[in-house]
Nucleic acid binder design. Structure first.
Length: 284
DNA sequence: TCCCAGGGGAGTT
DNA sequence: AACTCCCATGGG
């Protein structure tokens, strides 16, 4: 299956740049992961000047909806227009020039919420390990061509697994909050799927009522799954990037930096945040 | 205001 | 090899 792109898309920067934790690649060409919780393998190819996303149809024997891939990868997002907009920030230009072209993903908000709750006071390899352990407990596997795939667990399943088991799996002090939030979602006390249509600050407040969800984690969920592009998640890496480029911000708290980013970049904030994160974490 | 809660990465000794 | 610090959140 071939899906045409209007502009190039660097899959490493998009899928393994801190937005998502279940993608991997052995050759940095083909990427294996999940879209709508179904295993999938994709690459980006340039063919006769035309850029495409190619889906490996021999990876699993599950029918793949082109629309779900298009949506997840935010294929219709106009990267050229965004880069042009950000070029107006003079100090940003060197970063933009070297930053590979990426997309803000539209992931499943449930999986994104739990993933970023697990990111608190952690690091990317450990988050990936936690999510893998969690998926092994999902009781929801797919087998295809001799391979076994573990889907991300539902709220009901995480609630059934229980806090103690989560602790045994290595989630540490996050276990209690993950368990509690699974209960809240299971009972329908929050509707994560309605947050994309809500205005940014309301949606953020609702997420922050959940235990274990502070401003940074709420912003990650809003930016990387719910298409709230004004969200500006600030962790240590992003803070360092901003502080070095804008010395007047060195004394700002993380949440104040988040406000600063929204004021400065407006609807380009999430995109700009990815550039700060990427350049700070992996260099120019 | 400081200290703590898993555990893994990264840098230093 | 053995240390030390780091890390977003919330509680004491």
């Amino acid at each position: 299956m071939i899906i045409p792109l209007k502009d190039e898309m660097d899959l490493e920067a998009t899928l393994d740049g801190g937005q998502s934790f279940r993608w991997s690649s052995k050759d940095l060409e083909w990427w294996s992961g999940y879209i709508e919780n179904n295993p999938i393998k994709i690459r980006s190819v340039l063919e006769k000047e035309q850029m495409n996303i190619e889906v490996d149809l021999n990876y699993v024997d599950i029918p793949i909806e082109m629309d779900s891939v298009t949506k997840y990868l935010n294929i219709d997002f106009d990267v050229g227009k965004m880069n042009k907009r950000l070029m107006e920030y003079r100090e940003f230009r060197p970063y933009l020039k070297t930053m590979p072209k990426f997309r803000l993903l539209k992931q499943d908000p449930w999986e994104t919420l739990i993933s970023f709750m697990l990111s608190a006071q952690s690091n990317i390899p450990k988050i990936k390990k936690n999510i893998q352990s969690l998926s092994y407990e999902s009781n929801n596997i797919v087998t295809a061509y001799g391979n076994v795939f573990y889907k991300f667990p539902t709220a009901e399943r995480i609630y059934d697994v229980g806090e103690k088991k989560l602790r045994d799996l290595g989630m540490g002090f996050r276990s209690k909050n993950v368990y509690t939030v699974a209960g809240v979602v299971m009972r329908g006390e929050i509707d994560l799927y309605s947050l994309d249509g809500m205005d940014y600050s309301n949606a953020r407040e609702i997420l922050m009522e959940l235990p274990g969800v502070g401003p940074k984690i709420a912003d990650c969920v809003l930016a990387f799954s719910l298409d709230h592009q004004t969200a500006f998640p600030v962790d240590r890496w992003v803070a360092r990037g901003i502080n070095s480029m804008y010395p007047q911000t060195v004394d700002f708290t993380l949440d104040k930096l988040s406000q600063w980013g929204r004021d400065k970049f407006g609807s380009s904030a999430s995109y700009a945040q990815q550039i700060f994160f990427h350049t700070q974490r992996w260099g120019l």
